[in-house]
Design a protein around this nucleic acid. Sequence first.
DNA 1: GACATATTTCGAAGATTGTCTATATGATCC
DNA 2: GGATCATATAGACAATCTTCGAAATATGTC
Lengths: 89, 89
Amino acid sequence: MNHLFKALSDPTRRRILDLLKDGEMTPGDLYPHFDISKPSLSHHLSLLKQAELVVVRRDGKQLFYRLNTTVLQDLMSWTLDFLSSEDPT
Amino acid sequence: MNHLFKALSDPTRRRILDLLKDGEMTPGDLYPHFDISKPSLSHHLSLLKQAELVVVRRDGKQLFYRLNTTVLQDLMSWTLDFLSSEDPT
DNA sequence: GACATATTTCGAAGATTGTCTATATGATCC
DNA sequence: GGATCATATAGACAATCTTCGAAATATGTC
């Protein structure tokens, strides 16, 4: 769970996730959307992968990153747990 | 939104929120649950307040911190946005 | 006003993070 | 096998974050 929150705490990484909403993308596709170097982008993708927010597949030379919504469901549960515990004192 | 994610990215702060689920608490109440100094705890509370995850009221010498679930509803919306955009290609 | 209690703010040390350039890996093509 | 393209890893540096002890603020009591 800590990996997840750490991964989400950076704006660049959240923007990556936003872009992946429309379907899988390669680092090469993502790169022009950011003002950072390719290694930096790669590093962000690595953290997202560690947090299991994305999954990767390889096709030839390219890697395709795709959203993994499983962990986001965990985030939903985590959040709901607070909303349901609200004490209307 | 960035303040929110940054605030949630620390385990100590998430634990504070957990403790506040059962109702409002003072820094003095929270302190024995952690292995950090009072200034550190105070700092975490300050970040949670900045992120609007908690609200504070004073009664005499004591400050009472309480969960503010409004922002957590925003987090829910943010998360749901991903789950609904899942593309079953 | 002097003192005690509850909590925060200040200033600095150490750890973690984001970024870069340079180099390495993996896959394809000739 | 060598060249090339796509991407990752290594190592270094600056910025940010967490933490602390010391000092400051706010409230209440005598």
